[in-house]
Amino acid sequence: MPANPPYVFSAMRAYLTRRLVHSIIIIIGISMVVFIISRITGDPVSIMVDFTTPQEDREIIRKELGLDKPIPVQYLIFLMNAAKGDFGNSIRYEEPALDLVFQRIPATLRLLVFTIGWSLILAIPIGIISALKRNSLFDLMGMAFTFIGQSIPSFWLGIMMIMIVGVRFQLLPISGYGDGDIAHIIMPAITLGAFGMASFARITRSSMLAVLDSDYIQTARAKGLRETFVVIKHALRNALIPIVTILGLQIAGLLGGAVITEQIFAYPGVGWLAVQSIYNRDFPVIQAIVMVVSIGVVATNFLIDIIYTLIDPRIRYDKGK
């Protein structure tokens, strides 16, 4: 890579600084949303106690949880404690909410890494070949395949896989985490990744097509460079940019999808904990999950900004995307 002139670096630094400030503002915004949601989702006390617990007992519990203070005060307390990593104890498990979330994060991270991994490994070659062999049989099949991938509701795919791969042929364990072995991740990862894989393949194909038709590739070919070299070195690198963009946008979507996937496969990740906590009105856990997950998303996007500047030093630093 040719050395960049120094002014590019300083522009890059300014750009990244601005993105960092944005990220912090976003995180504060998230904290407000999180707080508001958990306050409007209703009374956590009613779910903790039996049907027949009298009113005065509920008041005791309410006081204990600090639910009797005015709302703005509750928010400030929440924010200060959240900064310290203290979201309170889970109402259901009586354990620090953040601990509970962190216990579940490795499982979800593994799932995400595997999901993104397999979908890219499959999608990029499909996209490239389809673009290179435009309108061939492969292209047609590949695109049909991705269209199907985009239109299957993921939970249906998941249950079908359990029935066929898990029960009928007994190739893979059906649910749970096992010892964190790969076998337990395969089916959830396929379920979660089908949609994204299809999107990635289609985007790779269309951006490859755009790049292949562009002048400089034509020039490179004219210069007599080997075709493989042209494809890998020039076309693919440029085609990667939209993929990275979409990846950033899809992280939140994937985490959302993990809610359903983890539920189906009883996979002990954050998504399942989220559903369970919402059903149980377990405020502290809901707050911790949304905060942690959203910060994760914001951080990933920040990381992607950095990757951008690495892939494409010509990126415009002045205006945000």
Partner: peptide
């Protein structure tokens, strides 16, 4: 941005 960062299904 805030809304995009929070998984919408949650």
């Amino acid at each position: 941005d805030v809304q995009l960062a929070i998984p919408l299904i949650l």
